[in-house]
Design a binder for these strands. Structure first.
Length: 314
DNA sequence: AACAGTTACAACCGCGGGTCG
DNA sequence: ACGACCCGCGGTTGTAACTGT
């Protein structure tokens, strides 16, 4: 037997909110607050709406500090990185983006960012295959027997990306596990605006007019943006940092595949700055880190590194 | 102009978890 | 300990706006 509905769906209005309803809700919350009881609020406010609907309308649309549209490259990057690390925990992701709601971030990912990321990643795959074909025809592969075919050489996460599922952080398969890792090779230069936004010191971006948004969206999906290095996120972040993080080193991550011999070894964690950034990431997302290692332990029998990294950063 | 297909976003739904009596 | 109530979350659906034919 299911739980009782929160309201009588036949007697309350549903569907899009009118400006009058918005104003009623806005003025009531402004004058009285939510009172901690959304179920009783619509009656008090004179709204013929379900309390749940009122809550959603307020949280996702009417709150004064909400930003709509106009996502910046930094926000794109944060969303991709966090989705890669913790999956579809939109409330957590949204909490790192001032003025954004979980619903907004979720919709943005599902309708725009996911397609953008997949397209960019597929482009990178093609370039990688092209390079490998040149290598195999012109010289020896590493470890002698590295005859590279697209299928054999493709890291598991590439196979994941080509059929990207909504929740890569479910640790139920090797593909999603690989996609769960944070990006230790991210440069501080790329990270700076992200970290600034985390502590709330970065100025809020001014959303461009809708026409400009659409124009920039079109530009984003151009095959070869003139200002972006091929195979990178705008701003120079390597795509592998977002979609192939398991390639980045066997000293930092559980062993997850046999592709370290296919030319990705140079991408290993390189410097102390990147390591510090990883520590910082662990501070912001301690649970994600713990869940990752728990999954690693479960699937690959790998033990987590000692906890307590954050002290060096505080 | 009309229609179909696609995109973007608001809103709904149902479940899990926390709180309280 | 238990059940009712409520909130918050993530997934899904509905629909207006836009685009292509």
């Amino acid at each position: 037997m299911g739980r009782a509905p929160c309201c009588d769906k036949m007697s309350v209005k549903r569907g899009p909110w009118s400006p009058e309803e918005d104003e009623l809700l806005r003025s009531y919350v402004h004058n009285h607050g939510t009172g901690g009881n959304w179920i009783a609020l619509p009656h008090k406010a004179g709204l013929n709406r379900c309390g749940k609907s009122c809550r959603l309308r307020w949280l996702n649309y009417l709150r004064p500090d909400i930003k709509h549209g106009g996502y910046t490259e930094q926000e794109d990057w944060i969303i991709c990185s966090l989705y890669n690390s913790i999956g579809s925990r939109w409330s957590i992701i949204a909490s790192k983006l001032p003025g954004r709601t979980d619903n907004d971030v979720k919709n943005y990912w599902n309708t725009k960012l996911k397609k953008k990321a997949i397209a960019m990643h597929q482009q990178q795959q093609q370039e990688y295959y092209h390079q490998q074909q040149q290598h195999s025809s012109g010289g020896r592969g590493r470890r002698g027997a590295a005859v590279v075919t697209p299928r054999a050489a493709a890291p598991r996460s590439q196979q994941c990306a080509s059929s990207m599922q909504p929740s890569p952080a479910s640790a139920s398969d090797a593909c999603s596990f690989g996609a769960m890792y944070p990006s230790p090779s991210m440069t501080l230069q790329a990270a700076a605006p992200v970290l600034a936004r985390y502590d709330g010191t970065a100025p809020a971006p001014v959303p461009p007019p809708r026409a400009q948004q659409q124009a920039s969206a079109l530009a984003e999906f151009s095959p070869a943006p003139a200002t972006a290095i091929s195979g990178t996120w705008a701003g120079g972040l390597p795509l592998d940092d977002m979609f192939l993080p398991e390639l980045l080193g066997d000293s930092e991550f559980p062993p997850g595949g046999d592709f370290f011999g296919t030319g990705f070894a140079p991408l290993l964690l390189q410097d102390r700055a990147a390591a510090s950034l990883q520590e910082l990431s662990a501070c912001y997302f301690p649970n994600a880190q713990a869940e990752m290692w728990a999954a690693a332990d479960h699937h690959l029998h790998v033990k987590a590194p000692p906890a307590g990294l954050c002290h060096s950063l505080t």
